[in-house]
Design a protein around this nucleic acid. Structure first.
Lengths: 224, 224
DNA sequence: ATTAATCGGTAACATATGTTACGGGAGGAC
DNA sequence: GTCCTCCCGTAACATATGTTACCGATTAAT
């Protein structure tokens, strides 16, 4: 698959024709970069001098808390931009470590090239604005999730969100409790303990990665 | 002062001439709104159907944590936009309660009017993008501040930021410990206790709102 | 098949922070 | 001056979460 084809799936190029992407790319200097699992693409605090545009793969953004514990902020799957809100504006530093979850390809272009690219097509500008907007919305929710509620609230949020458009009451955690603890910004034993307590109180049934919601009402009460 | 004059100070209209603002406004339907101290301009969770543009005054954004405790997210002074990142994108709900700190005036326009306005001048689009960008950067820092460090880390961040471009080592807190505790997302007694302990350890000298940094090195160690 | 690594459960204990309550000082309202 | 309110300091106690360590089960690697 050519780069142009891959880019046409990227949300930055939504509603932009394949041909047009090719034309634009010809006038822009960029380089292609590749990463393997657990390669660090950018370090928290590094200066942002350009824009990575994902072609394929999956990356994650991680912060580190005061104890040195990793807190995963988000997974970015498929075709998006890395740290789009940090190439313009006053604070041009990566807010997170950006790490490849598996084989990942990007193109990278410097600040000026990216600015030039955005000017080539108003659609790109709108798309970029919408990407940054949704990032803000995401972070706003993240604050509520990470900072304003205790562990059981996080569990409740997580489980209820995962079963929102889902008739059933069972959830299969997509990764280990260890990783989930990172996402919640807590330690694994604490997460396990909270899960056990919710299980003992017959609010959920938790066994390894399999969780069944027994009492949705009570679970909702832990949120907020 | 006319509305156009006031708007020309708003960051949305940066680099846009006074005359041009007047012309644009004539083609747009909007209304002027006024608030007194502690009036609620928008409630967390309300649907965002339009954009408030500040003319004058000061407002604050507050979330509520699971114990019902208020956590102040930010003060917005002077001339900015309220919840700019929530008029477009998937989650069009106010992320915070927005409350007037004192007499405040805005203009308000519906979603379509605001979209139309942005299309009238590319400068507005760029400005809007930069406003949303800086909001994202702000929230990203807010996560680190609120979620990833204990109280003494927050105190250290706060004090060191406030003396960054400031030769002295003394800080006068701009408001009561009570309000500061809201900003830190902790209770007042806990904040006082932490300040007392830092005082006893001779890292700061704290007396009411007056704080003197005695050992900048040790203070820095509390961050991260 | 054996070894090594990961994973989830658990427990004892330490620590940070919240809860509640009290008191005294400063300052404003009358 | 007296009352009232806000503000700060403080203390005893409760609670949530982290720390460390161990164990057995499962899974992956050789």
């Amino acid at each position: 698959m050519t780069i142009c084809e891959q880019l046409s799936k990227n949300i930055l190029f939504k509603n932009v024709g394949f041909r047009e992407i090719c034309t634009m790319l010809e006038e822009i200097s960029y380089k292609k970069t590749s990463y393997s699992k657990n390669d660090v693409i950018a370090f928290e605090g590094d200066e942002v001098r350009g824009q990575y545009i994902m072609l394929s793969g999956s990356v994650r953004g991680e912060m580190t808390n005061y104890q040195g514990k990793v807190v995963k902020i988000e997974d970015i799957e498929g075709s998006s931009l890395l740290a789009p809100a940090f190439i313009f504006g006053g604070d041009r530093h990566y807010p997170v470590d950006i790490i490849a979850n598996n084989d990942t390809e990007c193109i990278y272009m410097g600040n000026e090239s990216f600015t030039k690219l955005l000017q080539m097509n108003p659609e790109l500008n709108t798309n970029f604005r919408d990407i940054v907007t949704s990032k803000t919305q995401f972070l706003s929710n993240k604050i509520k999730f990470l900072a304003l509620q205790p562990i059981k609230g996080k569990i409740a949020s997580y489980l209820l969100t995962r079963t929102k458009n889902n008739p059933g009451n069972s959830v299969l955690l997509p990764y280990s409790q260890d990783k989930l603890a990172d996402l919640f910004g807590v330690t694994r034993p604490s997460l396990t303990r909270a899960l056990r307590e919710l299980d003992q109180d017959k609010i959920i049934e938790a066994e390894g990665k399999k969780i069944i919601i027994l009492d949705r009402k009570k679970l909702e009460n832990f949120i907020q």
